[in-house]
Amino acid sequence: MKLAADLQAFEQKLGHRFRDPSLLVQAVTHSSLSSATRPDNQRLEFLGDRVLGLAMAEALLQADMAAAEGQLAPRFNALVRKEACADVAREIGLGEVLKLGRSEMLSGGRRKEALLGDAMEAVIAAVYLDAGFDAARAIVRQLWGPRIGRVEQDARDAKTALQEWVQARGQQPPSYTALGRSGPDHQPVFTVEVRLTSGESEQAQAGTKRAAEQAAAKALLARMEGRNG
């Protein structure tokens, strides 16, 4: 009964009431709890990735009619990557209704970025199968709306900006080195160093290797731009 009530509350946050509730149950079922009679969300994740991609490509084309493909591609990648999907999942409380096996639950599965991102794609697929592409598109635009508006700034990430800065000054692209990983499996901390061929470097820590690289690049770019006025 509690699970049914939780899923009904989740439907309200999602903005879609399922005609076939079993689709939502499958979308929130992780492989650690699957069985012959309880399918997991992996097949839905595969479909949802494609539905999200089509809905997002359409939204970006309509948001900027003059943008070239070279401008649209990084915006698209920023919006559909696992980190973005996981952020949306957190905003609507998807982790709270995931059906996980005991070991996955004890290891902090409800907070894992990859798991949340996959489940978000599975939920999009469930909406698509339940009510068609128009309904899935509406959900994507509702949940990703603010991100679509600011994606041009987000897509120009710190690593790209740093690489453009050094190349404009005749240097080779910066190198990134993973210095270590600490913390428990469900909440790791990655330490990364970025270094220029001219010798300058910065280190940063974050919950994912990619985020640590971005933070290090941002810190080094800020220092180099400040030094050069």
Score class of each variant (00 low, 15 high):
6 D>I: 04
8 Q>R: 13
8 Q>A: 13
10 F>I: 10
15 G>F: 05
16 H>P: 00
16 H>R: 00
17 R>W: 06
18 F>Y: 03
21 P>G: 07
25 V>G: 06
25 V>T: 14
26 Q>F: 09
26 Q>E: 14
27 A>Q: 11
29 T>R: 12
29 T>G: 07
31 S>I: 13
31 S>E: 14
35 S>R: 09
40 D>W: 06
41 N>K: 07
42 Q>D: 14
43 R>L: 09
47 L>Q: 13
51 V>D: 04
53 G>T: 02
57 A>V: 09
59 A>K: 14
60 L>K: 04
61 L>N: 13
62 Q>E: 15
63 A>I: 10
67 A>H: 09
67 A>G: 08
68 A>I: 01
69 E>W: 10
69 E>M: 09
70 G>Y: 06
71 Q>G: 08
71 Q>E: 15
71 Q>A: 11
72 L>S: 02
74 P>V: 01
76 F>E: 00
76 F>D: 00
76 F>L: 08
79 L>G: 02
79 L>M: 07
80 V>P: 06
84 A>L: 00
86 A>R: 03
88 V>I: 11
88 V>W: 00
90 R>W: 01
91 E>I: 02
92 I>Q: 01
92 I>C: 00
93 G>K: 02
96 E>F: 01
97 V>H: 09
97 V>D: 05
99 K>Y: 06
100 L>E: 11
102 R>W: 08
102 R>K: 11
104 E>D: 12
105 M>Y: 14
107 S>M: 14
108 G>M: 10
111 R>F: 09
112 K>Q: 15
112 K>R: 15
114 A>S: 04
114 A>Y: 00
114 A>E: 05
116 L>A: 00
118 D>I: 00
119 A>I: 07
119 A>H: 05
120 M>H: 06
121 E>F: 02
122 A>L: 00
122 A>E: 03
123 V>L: 06
123 V>A: 07
129 L>N: 10
129 L>Y: 11
131 A>E: 13
133 F>L: 14
133 F>P: 10
134 D>P: 03
134 D>Y: 04
137 R>L: 09
138 A>W: 10
141 R>E: 15
142 Q>S: 13
142 Q>I: 01
142 Q>V: 04
143 L>W: 00
145 G>Q: 13
147 R>K: 15
148 I>W: 02
150 R>H: 12
151 V>F: 03
153 Q>K: 12
160 T>V: 11
164 E>S: 08
165 W>M: 05
165 W>V: 05
166 V>H: 04
168 A>L: 09
169 R>S: 03
170 G>M: 07
171 Q>S: 10
171 Q>G: 10
174 P>Q: 12
174 P>D: 12
174 P>S: 13
175 S>V: 15
175 S>G: 13
175 S>N: 11
178 A>D: 05
180 G>F: 08
180 G>V: 07
180 G>Q: 06
182 S>N: 08
185 D>R: 14
186 H>I: 11
187 Q>N: 12
188 P>T: 03
189 V>D: 01
191 T>L: 12
191 T>A: 13
192 V>D: 06
197 T>G: 07
197 T>A: 15
197 T>Q: 12
198 S>P: 02
201 S>V: 07
202 E>M: 13
205 Q>P: 00
209 K>F: 08
210 R>Q: 14
210 R>L: 10
212 A>E: 08
216 A>H: 06
223 R>A: 15
223 R>W: 03
227 R>K: 14
228 N>L: 15
